[in-house]
Computed example of a mutant assay.
Amino acid sequence: MAYAVLPAGETKKVRTPDGRDLAYLEFGQPGSPLVIHNHGGPSSRLEGTLLASGAISHGLRLVSVDRPGNGRSSPQKDRTYKGWADDLMTVADALGYQQFGVSGWSEGGPWALAAAAYIDPSRLRHVSYIAGAAYGAFGDNSAAQYLDKVDALGGQLALHHRMAFHLMYELLELDAVHFRKSYIKTLIKMVNERDAKLLEDPTIAEAFADSSAECFAQGSTALVQDAELIYRRWPFDVTKIERSVHMWQGMEDHLVPYRINQEVSQRMPGAVWHPVEGEDHFMPIPASADVFAVAARELGV
C-alpha cells in the first residue's frame, strides 16, 4: 500500500496571463508524465503530500495547485470553471508540457470535470475524478436528496442566504485553523471505521490538518466562492462529456454519498466507474497507487 505522507518541499508559483500567481507543490521527477491535482475543500496544495507516493510509484510527476484565493494563490474576483481550465493549461505550459492529466478529490472533483469539459482531449490525456462533490451537476443543489442535513442546508444557504453561508465557512475556518484536534475528531466521528483508523494515524492527521488550515491562509472568501459555484447549476453539461473520465468512489462514503456520483456516471457518456467497496471518503489515500496506475497507463508510462 503506497500511501506514505511525503514532505511538502518548496512552494513554487506560476504567473497567469492576467498577472495572478498560482502556488503549487511538485512531487516526482521533472520530465515524467504530468498530473495536476485539484484539491478538495477546505484543503490546499498540501493535499498532494497525502497522494503523491502513489503517483511517484507509477513514474508520474504530481503537481498540486492552490485554486485562486486558497492557500497562497492570488485571489480572483470572477471565478469560473472555464477560467480554471485555462489556469490548468497555464500551469502545464509553464512546466513545459503539451499533454498532461488531472485529478480532483472531493470539492476538487468538479474542477477536474470542468477540465474534461473545456480542454481538448488531445491535450488533456487523463482525468481522475475522486469522490467529487457533484452538487450542481444537474441544476442548483441538484444532489440535495442524497446529502446529509448539514450539507443540504449548506446548499440552501449558498443559493438563498449568502451572509449565513459566509458565516458557516468562517466558523469552519476557526475550527480548522485554531482547533485542529477538534477538527480531526469531528471528521473521525463522521466516517467509517477504515477512515477513522487513517485519521487516527498522527502523520496522516497532521498532514490533513495542515492542508485544511492552509486553505484559509487568506481567509474563507475563496472557499466560499468555490462552494457557491459547486452548489449552483454548473455551466458545462456532464451529459455531453464523451472523453474518458475515471470516477473513483468509496461505496461507504459518508461525506459524498455514492449515489451522487453514480448518477453522474450513468448520465455521462465518458464515465468509467470505479466503485471501491468498504471505503469511505478518504479512500484515495490508501488507494492512491490504484488511482494513479490508471493515470500512468493513459499517459503512456
Rank of each mutant, 00 (worst) to 15 (best):
M247S: 04
Q249K: 05
N261Q: 03
M247L: 14
R259L: 09
P257Y: 06
F236I: 08
E242A: 15
Q266K: 11
V245E: 04
H254A: 15
Q266W: 08
K240E: 15
V256N: 02
I241M: 10
R259K: 11
E263N: 01
R243Q: 12
N261D: 00
W234H: 04
Q262Y: 07
Y258Q: 05
W248Q: 06
V264R: 01
V264P: 00
Q262M: 09
V238F: 11
N261G: 01
E252I: 12
E252K: 15
G250F: 08
K240Q: 15
V256C: 03
S244M: 06
S265V: 08
Q249P: 05
I241K: 08
E263Q: 04
L255I: 13
M251P: 05
V245N: 05
P235T: 11
L255R: 06
P257E: 07
G250W: 06
F236R: 06
V256K: 00
Q249L: 10
D253P: 01
M247G: 01
L255Y: 09
H254V: 14
R259H: 10
V256A: 02
M247T: 08
V245G: 06
I241T: 09
I241Y: 09
Q266D: 12
V264A: 03
I241V: 10
V245M: 03
F236S: 06
Q249F: 03
